[in-house]
């Protein structure tokens, strides 16, 4: 029993990380119909910027946090302006390959700027791990879970309560129709990029203390985030959250109850089964683009 609880805690921690990354994928997809395969690299940038700003330059955490989001979001903005916007015939597959190129590019830049070594950061607050019925949970994990929930809830409010959010949703439904009603659709797409990469940066920062940050950490995280987003139903915020946590918990239980060698295998087989029975993900069934 104690073990199962520990597996759940472990799964929740990882799951919350996957969820935040999945939210980034989902947000961008809902506004632009695009899967950004460089998203994991923005997560990596978030981690590494925090390593520099907070770890090396000793800037107070809240300021460093905001600065990091700003830096990464700026990178996202430049990415949209120079790489995505300039494509003349934006077919989905072409954009996907551009994001693949961007991920290699960003990894290369990070390797030059931060070197090939890994970095680690102290937790956000220095308290002993929580104990519950013999299972332990790091305070940083609590941070991760709380921040990801807040983030998803905040985004939910943004979409439902603010004019900008509604305008963005309108753009997501039909770019042209939104444009006709006077919504600056191009700006909305840009905003979606900025927000999605910003969310990616947040994911990178909150996991920095529990894991090690290096220039090549993004690929796997991006992959897991993509899986979580698809599992939950791409384009849906709550779906991303659900998908992420489900993936994390499945992995942890796979390790605990079956075998750690087959950890990823177990998770992926279940993912496939879910997809076969619900081809549009758990929540939401947006008709997705063809190639």
């Amino acid at each position: 029993m104690q073990e199962v609880l520990q597996y759940l805690f472990s799964g929740l921690t990882n799951g919350a990380i996957y969820a935040v990354i999945a939210v980034g994928f989902s947000m961008l997809y809902s506004a632009t119909d695009l899967i950004n395969f460089a998203h994991g690299e923005f997560v990596m940038l978030g981690s590494l910027f925090l390593v520099t700003l907070w770890g090396a330059w000793q800037i107070p955490l809240p300021i460093a946090f905001l600065l990091t989001v700003a830096c990464v979001a700026l990178t996202g903005l430049l990415f949209e302006r120079f790489a995505i916007r300039t494509v003349r015939k934006p077919q989905p597959i072409v954009l996907v390959i551009i994001t693949v190129g961007a991920s290699i590019f960003l990894r290369g830049v990070a390797m030059i700027l931060w070197g090939k070594d890994a970095y680690s950061l102290p937790p956000f607050s220095n308290q002993p791990p929580l104990e519950l019925a013999g299972a332990t949970l790091l305070i940083q994990s609590v941070w991760i879970i709380v921040i990801s929930l807040l983030l998803v809830f905040g985004l939910h409010l943004f979409y439902r309560r603010t004019l900008t959010g509604k305008a963005m949703q309108a753009t997501a439904i039909s770019k042209r129709a939104a444009w006709i009603t006077g919504i600056p659709a191009g700006l909305m797409v840009l905003l979606a990029f900025v927000m999605s990469t910003g969310v990616g940066a947040v994911a990178g920062m909150i996991i920095a203390p529990v894991t090690m940050c290096s220039y090549d950490m993004g690929t796997l995280l991006g992959l897991k985030g993509f899986c979580a987003a698809m599992l939950g139903g791409i384009g849906s915020l709550w779906g991303a959250l659900l998908g992420g946590i489900l993936l994390g918990v499945l992995e942890a239980l796979g390790v605990g109850l079956i075998s750690s060698a087959l950890k990823d295998g177990v998770a992926f087989i279940l993912l496939l089964l879910i997809l076969y029975f619900r081809p549009g993900g758990l929540i939401g069934a947006a008709e997705s683009a063809r190639f």
């Binding site: 520990q6 472990s10 799964g11 921690t13 995280l221 390790v255 750690s260 060698a261 950890k263």
Partner: peptide
């Protein structure tokens, strides 16, 4: 006898199993 992925971010599940 457990293993972990080179880029995994958390190994508490494996360690819990080993501990038991």
């Amino acid at each position: 006898d457990e293993n972990f992925g080179a880029k995994d971010t958390d190994m508490t599940a494996q360690l819990t199993k080993i501990r038991s």
